[in-house]
């Protein structure tokens, strides 16, 4: 029996400002984790990653990260990915800023 696949999202950084972005089901890059496509199938995850990596004109460093379904959309599992959804803990910068896109 194969081990169970942990669902994934595709994430990267935006090319110009470096902000964390997430690949949506309709091929957009969202700034919000909850809008990411939650990928439940391993083969599909690889295909989505390939598609994402091709978009070099808007993003840098796409990779697959573990995620789980939540009431408002996918949620991160690992603390590193949780930090990426917010920004640093010492200042309310990055996604914590009210002016953040």
């Amino acid at each position: 029996m194969s081990r169970q696949f942990t669902p994934k999202i595709v994430t990267a950084n935006a090319l110009i400002e470096g902000d964390v972005v997430y690949f949506t089901a309709d091929d957009r890059w969202s700034r919000r984790h909850a809008e990411a496509e939650l990928i439940e199938d391993e083969a599909h995850a690889q295909l989505r990653l390939i598609r994402a990596v091709r978009q070099q004109d808007v993003i840098v460093g796409a990779y697959l990260a573990d995620a789980m379904a939540g009431p408002d959309g996918p949620e991160p599992i690992h603390f590193r990915e949780s930090f990426r959804t917010l920004g640093p803990s010492n200042y309310a910068h990055g996604k914590q800023e009210s002016t953040h896109v």
Binding site: N13, E17, G18, D19, V20, V60, F83, R84, P88, H93
Partner: peptide
């Protein structure tokens, strides 16, 4: 080479 890294949330 010019000291520009990409970090978690930004360059």
């Amino acid at each position: 080479m010019n000291g520009l890294y990409l970090q978690l949330h930004a360059y």
